[in-house]
Amino acid sequence: MPPAGIWIDGLIQSCAYMTMAFGMVLVFSILGILNWTHGQFYMLGAFVVYYAITAVGIPFPLGLLAAGVLVAGLSILVKKIIIDHITGDLYVGVATMGLIFFFEGAASMIFGMQDKGLARVLPGVVDLGSFSVSYQKIAVVSFTLVIMIILFIMLNFTRIGLAIRATAQQPDAASLYGVSVERLSLTVMGIGCGLAAMAGGIIAPLYTINPFIGGIPMIMSLLAIVIGGLGSLTGAIVGGLILGFLNSVVAYHLSYLSEVVLFMLVVIILLVRPQGLFGASVK
C-alpha cells in the first residue's frame, strides 16, 4: 500500500486530468476535431492564475475564473480566425499542432522560460493523525468538484447544455433545441478550452509553472479520453480519474513501467474496443 500522500497526489492529478479531458472530449464530440493545443491552454491558465495572484493580487478562486474566461475568449478567437477557415478535420488537427509551437513561443517571450512557483496561496495543513493534507490540496479538490457540479447543472438543465449533449450523441441535433450550430460550437470551444485553463490554474499553486508544462497533461488527457471512449463525456471523467491514480499510485509500485503499461493499455483498447469503456458502439 503506498503512503497516503501518494493517494492524495493521485487525486490531485486526477482532478486536473478530469477537468482537462472533459474539455477535450467536449470539443471533440461537438466540433469533431482533436484540439492538440489543449495543453497550451492549460499552460496559459496556469500563468493567468499565477499573475492574477502575484501581480494583480486577486484571490485564487477569482484568478481561476479569470483564467477560464480569458482562455475561453482566446480559444473562440482561434476558432473564428483559424479553425473556421480550414477545411478537413485532418488539417485542422495539424493547424492546432502548429499552434502548440505558437503558444509555447509566445509564452516564452512574454513570461520568460524560467520556472515559476506559487507558494502558499492557502497556507496551513489539516492534521489527520498519521499524515497531513495542506489546505491548498483540499482547495484543489473542492474547486474541481464545484466546476464539475456547475458543468453538470449546465449540461442537464440549460437549453444550450441539452443541445450540447444531444449533439454529442447525434450531429445536427442542435436545431431541435433552437440553438444555432455556430453558437453551439463557439460555446463548446469556449467551455472546452476554458476547462483546460482551469485545470492548469487549479494545480498551478502545487507545481512549477513554465511555458512547456502543457505537453504531458495534453497526452494524459488524450489517453484518458481514449480509455473512457472518444466522444463519451462520462468516459472522460472516469478516464481522467484512472489516469491520475495510474500516474501516481501505480507508478509508485512500477515506476516507469506504469507508463509502458498505460500506453500499451491504450493500444489494446483501441485495437479491441475502440469505443473505449463508455463509448457507444460506433457502427
Binding site: I82, H85, I86, T87, G88, L90, Y91, V94, A95, M97, G98, L99, I100, F101, F102, F103, E104, G105, A106, A107, S108, M109, G112, M113, P211
Partner: peptide, 24 residues
C-alpha cells in the same frame, strides 16, 4: 537571440500555410 521567437514564428508559418494553401 530572443527566447521563444523561433517557436512562435514556426507555429505561425504552419498555420498560415494551412490557411492559404488548404487541404494539404
Amino acid at each position: 537571440d530572443i527566447y521563444g521567437i523561433q517557436q512562435l514564428l514556426f507555429g505561425a508559418v504552419v498555420v498560415l500555410v494551412l490557411l492559404f494553401l488548404p487541404k494539404g
